[in-house]
Computed example of a mutant assay.
Amino acid sequence: MKCLKIAVQKSGRLHDDSLQILKEAGIHIDNGKDQLKAHASNFPLEVLYLRNGDIPQYLEDGVVDIAIIGENLLVEQERALPIAERLGFSKCRLSVAVEKSFPYKEIKDLNGKKIATSYPNSVQHFLDKKGINADIHIISGSVEIAPNIGLADAIVDIVSSGNTLFKNNLIEVEEVLTSEAVLVVSPHITEEKDQILNELQFRLRAVLMARNSRYVLLNIPNEKLENIRQILPGMNSPTVMPLMKAGWSSIHSVIPKESFWEIINELKTHGAEGILVCPIEKMVL
């Protein structure tokens, strides 16, 4: 069987997370030091470590079959490549930032200003949409320093935690777009390799569902069961088991990670006791 060729970032913030999700999907990659190509030992997958900005072209040319890249790169390069999966990591946003002393009140304050960025296409589309006429200065790196040295009045750059902006006396004032890691497919993928991709997606979805869910066990008086059932529908329905203590039951279910604390508080309000929460390794529906 032929190998599915996947491109991942050679270095940078996406590299480690890309390899981690493949590892959690049960794929063991034999990667020696400084290798630019590696094979999985237990899955028909070949990994190519490439420069991030080059990956979309490799996909369009059919050199690689799939890739894990940031969605913002597709937008910036204006590539119409199909996204097979949203992977939920490396979440960030492309934002406008100005110095704290800049008297910014609304987007119109950028009219006639100089904006430094490494994402000129995304910025231009944003400005056009807002009806703003500004002068874009393209900078490859260290965009944050531009206002401080008088090169620009504002910057547009990738923001995750915001720490870099804070350290450079900048504040975020507008969001241009949001981004996360995505699995992208080449338009030239063969039917045989598409079957391998289907198996890979099956594994990735099991990992992603587990990452986004928590397994919860709790004890509840029987007269409260219906109330709890409404809070905890689970995948299909919660598992209910009688306890030795008369009039009590144990409920097992799955809750979404994003609303975890809200659900836990609601469970406590309805009389839940002995709440135990566990991570889920894999989740297959």
Rank of each mutant, 00 (worst) to 15 (best):
K2S: 15
C3G: 00
L4V: 12
L4A: 08
I6C: 10
I6Y: 05
A7Q: 05
A7D: 06
D16E: 12
E24V: 04
I27M: 01
G32F: 08
L36S: 14
A38R: 03
A38V: 09
A40Q: 00
S41W: 00
N42R: 00
F43L: 00
F43K: 00
P44M: 05
V47A: 02
L48P: 07
L50P: 02
L50K: 09
G53Y: 04
D54P: 02
I55P: 01
Y58L: 10
L59K: 05
D61W: 11
V63I: 15
E71I: 05
E71P: 00
N72K: 05
E78K: 11
R79S: 11
P82V: 12
A84P: 05
A84D: 12
E85L: 15
L87G: 05
K91Q: 14
A97W: 05
A97V: 08
V98T: 02
K100T: 14
K100D: 07
F102L: 01
E106N: 15
L110R: 06
V123Q: 02
L127E: 09
D128M: 10
K130A: 11
I139Y: 06
I139G: 03
S140G: 06
S140N: 13
G141I: 11
P147E: 10
G150P: 11
A152L: 10
A152Q: 09
A152M: 07
A154N: 09
I155T: 13
D157Y: 01
V159E: 11
V159R: 03
G162C: 05
G162N: 03
N163C: 04
I171Y: 01
E172H: 07
V173H: 07
V176L: 03
T178R: 13
L183M: 14
L183H: 09
I189D: 02
Q195N: 15
L197W: 07
N198V: 13
Q201K: 15
A206I: 07
M209Q: 12
R211K: 13
S213P: 02
V216W: 01
V216G: 00
L217F: 10
L217N: 07
N219I: 10
P221V: 09
N222K: 13
E223R: 08
L225H: 00
E226Q: 11
I228W: 04
I228T: 08
I231P: 06
P233Q: 14
M235D: 14
T239I: 15
T239N: 08
V240I: 15
M241R: 05
L243E: 12
A246C: 02
G247R: 05
G247W: 10
W248H: 08
I251T: 13
S253M: 08
V254L: 07
V254I: 15
I255F: 07
I255R: 02
I255P: 02
I255E: 03
P256A: 04
P256Q: 07
S259T: 12
E266M: 05
E266C: 06
K268I: 15
T269C: 00
T269D: 02
H270G: 06
G274K: 04
G274C: 07
I275K: 00
L276V: 15
E281N: 11
E281L: 13
M283R: 09
V284A: 06
